[in-house]
Design a protein around this nucleic acid. Structure first.
Lengths: 184, 184
DNA sequence: AGCGACATGTAAGCGGTTACATGATTCT
DNA sequence: AGAATCATGTAACCGCTTACATGTCGCT
């Protein structure tokens, strides 16, 4: 159960409400792990039952109460154990490759378009990524101030960019090889 | 609904039973799209209702009946339309990056081990891939005999290998950069 | 006698998404 | 007047996984 470990991860920095957590997800790990608000609230309740977090209700004037969760020792242990347990490689699920695999009934033009469209989307995302995400790491660093964390976050960013660059290059290369498809 | 389109894809070559389809999934597209037996049977029933496939019951002596499905014109249209509709890039879900992102409470050794274990798994999978999968394409080609398909299948294979090679290289490179992590 | 291949399906559960629901405050 | 922010949650659904269920044939 991975989402719960990500939540534990955030709570090592500071106690947070469900609402806060949603923002943290969206602003930091969204590019490799997303979570919806309803998922987060349900997880927090389960985690409180399990004893990994504890809730403190904070009343506010003329606003809904905040339910702030902080990590317990049990939670810290669980996180530590998860972080030191190597994960199996996840099963790949790549729909675009399914399209390529079954593209034989299409005309050459349409197969070309399939690759071209994919390359375009990758290029677009890469641009967004390059422009928007470095700033995120810096902002998080400013809040938390841990240089050790900053380095690790930088890794996840670099991975994201390098991955997109690699895939874009692969698809563009494939486009060249696509000129002479046999017709049977 | 992607599984159903993959099933339609297989049925363009020949009519198949659920049992056959499970084998085809396991022997060809498993490295980028897997399906369980129960999923396949349920999908076939839904697709028959929708009118994308039609079932023919074939009685066998002293064996369970085979229910062989063949694709209809509506199914062919649906497949064609899906194949010519560009997909959005899927949201990335990379648990290993979550571990990296939250690894700051770990010792340097343990962080190193996190990367090392990942590299080892990648190396292992790459070896399996290189040894086992080329043969699959050739065997499928022998059965179907379409040179056009063979080329497209080769693309999906090449993608898989190149992807693993890239990721392995990235992680190994990161391992080098990991020597001097600050401690705050 | 036991296992794997052949062949069909059902049932329960899990993680995740989407939509629904409420209600005050502040900014434009 | 309307949108965004703050803040909580529920309910329905969807794709997928795992486990259960049944039964024959052929090989070792």
């Amino acid at each position: 159960m991975s989402l719960e470990h990500a939540i534990l991860g955030f709570l090592t920095y500071q106690p947070l409400s469900g609402y806060d957590l949603k923002k943290f997800f969206d602003e930091s790990v969204r590019h490799f792990w997303s979570a919806t608000q309803s998922q987060i609230y349900r997880s927090l309740m389960r985690m409180a039952e399990t004893g990994w977090v504890e809730m403190e209700r904070i009343e506010q004037d003329e606003r809904p109460d905040r339910k702030v969760y902080h990590i317990t020792d049990a939670g810290r242990d669980e996180l530590f154990q998860w972080l030191t347990t190597p994960l199996d490689l996840p099963a790949v699920r790549n729909l675009w490759l399914v399209q390529v695999f079954f593209a034989h009934p299409l005309s050459d033009d349409k197969i070309f378009a399939l690759f071209k469209a994919h390359a375009d989307k990758l290029r677009q995302k890469l641009e967004l990524f390059r422009n928007g995400v470095q700033e995120v790491v810096e902002r998080c660093f400013a809040e938390v101030g841990s240089e050790r964390s900053r380095r690790l976050w930088q890794f996840t960013l670099d991975y994201g960019i390098a991955h997109l660059e690699w895939e874009l290059q692969w698809v563009e290369n494939a486009l060249k090889d696509l000129r002479h498809l046999p017709f049977d």
